[in-house]
Design a protein around this nucleic acid. Structure first.
Length: 343
DNA sequence: AACTTATGACTAA
DNA sequence: TAGTCCTAAGTTG
């Protein structure tokens, strides 16, 4: 799950449920004890995502007794391949169960629940999720889990290796398995941001500036475009699924060198990344086989609606031309492509 | 119980 | 390119 769309959903979740609230922070696992102690008692004042990076800003609380002004601090989290956040809410509070690594029990539970809500049809489930509105957490699955401690709410004991737990009076978040989890000052945040290229989910910068920056960075390199779109300094937030699917939808061979892909195709590829990531934020899932993709007839081999054109479809017929989808490791990750559709 | 896999990214060679 | 780190679930024996 954790490509750019998931991290944006996390930022939205924290904005909705934690920002404006004093936070108790701890490290049940112990590996982030010092960092958690630095943030403890501060108020979360902002939540942002850039690419696959999450930044939670903490400022001085308005708690009684907190009279000394503390300089703002940022919690910087990168989930890596299998990090995830799990959320809990007090009775009556609506929070999403978890966001991050796939196949957590809560994720499976929420999937099957959505299934029922949508009448047991997988495609319907996705359509419903996409209708909740742009870049919003409205309508996502809700869960309640809690313990009662001395009359007031508290989250249940941590499950697994919880690096960081953030608790407010009504909600809690547990972080497990991040590849990065650190406390930064403003200068530290700038260092991280300085390494990142344009983010398709960036809705504050002018679209044309982002697009031309992406095109310029790709065209300025002789590396294969399949490597370039996984490079976070070329485009921030694209991961292995968006790489495979974006290049397929653009008809671009992942082996073509960046400087050898036309400006026109790269501009379209950028625009498609924007569509795809934006859609991912709304669905909470990557789903690239959508009927309005383009005019080509989409052949579906069985009754089950396909989620992806090529990702993890090694050896299966291409949904557009029937040629077997191929796979090969590129950038240390499994790359999937259609040798016929992508040139 | 051991092994494999994962939507990431770094370092050493 | 190979090895490393973070974790949990599924598969195999």
């Amino acid at each position: 799950m954790p490509e750019g769309h998931s991290i944006r959903r996390l930022a939205l979740a924290f904005s909705e449920w934690f920002v404006g609230h004093a936070c108790d922070t701890s490290s049940p696992q112990g590996r982030f004890a010092l960092g958690a102690a630095r943030l403890n008692g501060m108020t979360m004042v902002d939540a942002q995502s850039v690419g696959k990076h999450l930044f939670l800003e903490f400022g001085s609380g308005d708690r009684a007794g907190a009279e000394t002004t503390r300089a703002p601090l940022w919690l910087h989290v990168h989930l890596g391949l299998y990090g995830s956040w799990r959320f809990y809410g007090s009775p009556g509070t609506s929070v999403t169960p978890s966001i991050g690594a796939p196949r957590l029990p809560d994720v499976l539970a929420s999937d099957s629940d959505m299934h029922e809500d949508a009448g047991g049809d997988a495609f319907e489930m996705v359509r419903l999720a996409s209708e909740v509105g742009p870049r919003s957490n409205e309508g996502i699955r809700l869960s309640e889990d809690f313990g009662i401690d001395n009359g007031h709410w508290s989250p249940p004991p941590p499950r697994g290796a919880v690096r960081l737990r953030i608790v407010t009076e009504t909600v809690a978040a547990d972080l497990t398995g991040p590849t990065q989890c650190e406390v930064l000052d403003a200068a530290g945040v700038e260092v991280v941001l300085g390494r990142l290229g344009p983010d398709p989910l960036d809705d504050e910068s002018p679209a044309e500036r982002l697009r031309s920056e992406f095109v310029g960075r790709v065209r300025g390199s002789r590396r294969p475009v399949g490597e370039l779109v996984m490079d976070q300094s070329v485009v921030a937030g694209v991961g292995n699924i968006y790489r495979a699917e974006g290049l397929f939808r653009g008809g671009i061979s992942p082996f073509r060198r960046g400087n050898n892909v036309s400006e026109k195709r790269l501009r379209s590829l950028w625009d498609d990344f924007v569509v795809l990531l934006d859609d991912g934020v709304r669905r909470g899932n990557i789903y690239t086989v959508i009927p309005d993709w383009h005019s080509a007839e989409i052949v579906v081999e069985d009754d089950e609606a396909e989620k992806w054109f090529v990702y993890k479809r090694d050896g299966k017929p291409c949904l557009v031309c029937g040629t077997p989808v191929r796979t090969r490791v590129m950038q240390g990750r499994n790359l999937f492509w259609c040798p016929s559709c992508q040139r």
